[in-house]
C-alpha cells in the first residue's frame, strides 16, 4: 500500500509540474487529466471509493473534456501564448522565491502532523458520505446546489442572444440555421 502511495504521489507531482511547464496547451490538459486520475488513486487508497469515482466522473470525465473541447476549437498553439514583460518575470521569480523560503522555513524542523482523530476506513463509503451530507451538512449542501443553479441560469442568460441583436439579423437567421 505504501508503495502505491508513493507511486501515485510521484505521478501527481510530476504531472502537476508538467501542467505548468508544458508548452502546448493540449499537453497541459493531458497532464492535468493524469494528475486527476492519480488523485483518484489516492482517494481509493483511503477507501473513499465514492469520492474517487465522482472525482473521475466530474473532473476527468466532464470538466477536462470541456477544457479539451475549448482548446481544440480555439486551436491554441505556442504563438498564441502571451509573452510576459521582463518586470512581470522578475516579480514572479521574487514572489516564487519568497514562497519557497516560507515553505522551507515551515518544514525546517520536519513535518510533525498528528491526525485530529483516528482514520476510519468507512468514512468515504457511500452510506457515511450520504448520511453526513444530508444530516450534518444539509444546509451547506442545499445552499451550494442553489449556487450551481444560479450559475447555470447566469450562463444561459449570457449565452442567449440579445433580443435587439437577433431582430436585426432575423431575415438571415433561418437560412443560417439550415446550413448549420
Amino acid at each position: 500500500m505504501q508503495f502505491l502511495f508513493y507511486l501515485f504521489a510521484a505521478i501527481s507531482v510530476i504531472s502537476a509540474v508538467f501542467v505548468v511547464s508544458a508548452k502546448s496547451p493540449i499537453n497541459s490538459v493531458i497532464a492535468l487529466i493524469v494528475c486527476f486520475l492519480s488523485i483518484a488513486g489516492h482517494y481509493i487508497l483511503l477507501n473513499a471509493q465514492f469520492l474517487a469515482m465522482v472525482h473521475i466522473i466530474v473532473y476527468t470525465g466532464a470538466i477536462m473534456v470541456l477544457f479539451l473541447f475549448v482548446i481544440m476549437l480555439l486551436n491554441l498553439n505556442k504563438s498564441a501564448e502571451p509573452v510576459k514583460t521582463l518586470a512581470t518575470r522578475i516579480a514572479a521569480v521574487i514572489a516564487g522565491g519568497v514562497f519557497l523560503l516560507t515553505l522551507l522555513a515551515a518544514v525546517r524542523h520536519g513535518l510533525d502532523i498528528t491526525p485530529a482523530r483516528d482514520f476510519d476506513g468507512g468514512v468515504g463509503l457511500v452510506r457515511s458520505v450520504g448520511l453526513s451530507l444530508f444530516n450534518e451538512f444539509l444546509l451547506p449542501f442545499e445552499v451550494s446546489s442553489i449556487l450551481f443553479l444560479s450559475a447555470m441560469v447566469g450562463a444561459l442568460m449570457l449565452a442567449k442572444k440579445e433580443p435587439a441583436a437577433s431582430a436585426g439579423t432575423s431575415p438571415a437567421a433561418p437560412a443560417e440555421k439550415r446550413v448549420a
Binding site: Q49, F50, M53, V54, I56, I57, T60, G61, A62, V65, L125, V126
Partner: peptide, 13 residues
Amino acid sequence: EIGILYVFAMVSI
C-alpha cells in the same frame, strides 16, 4: 460498492 459509478467513470474517460 460503487460498481455502477465505476462503469460510468470508465465511459466518461
